[in-house]
Amino acid sequence: MSRHSLSRWWFIGTLAFALMLMLLPLPDVLEPFKPYWPALVLLYWSLESDDRVTLGLAFAVGLTADLLNGLVLGEQALRLCALVFIALRFRARLRFFPIWQQTLAVLALLLNDRILLLFVRILAGSSLPPVNWWISPFVGAALWPFLFLLLDDLRARLRIQ
């Protein structure tokens, strides 16, 4: 197996793992604390590799997540597209932020994602979510440095791009 295909499989594997983590059933108490894993992993890849993450990929991942989640088809596709678009737009700056600034930026992105989701839900006619619905972005942002360092470290150990 060439290094190139290994790195491609690694990329796909992390995305699949993120989707699995999203599906992972948790006790009811922990459910609102579950971060939006696909967004975090997609963010990591869009910052770290220049051409792999495109809007099309974000759309595909979002559709898969929708199918897996059983939610309205296209909801997560929309959210991930918007997220990845912003990340790609500011990629050059985000990449060279110190880690705490990057964490803040991720928090802003995730909050923006929640607001977008709120819009979609309200348009679809659901009621306002409870307060603890807003915890998830903070958990995601708090996990971001660790996720970033872990994935970076693994990538360095595997010597893949």
């Binding site: 088809l73 929309l78 597209c81």
Partner: peptide, 11 residues
């Protein structure tokens, strides 16, 4: 892409 997602959602 956003339009596509919207269409999907509506459908």
């Amino acid at each position: 892409y956003l339009a596509l997602a919207m269409v999907l959602m509506v459908l």
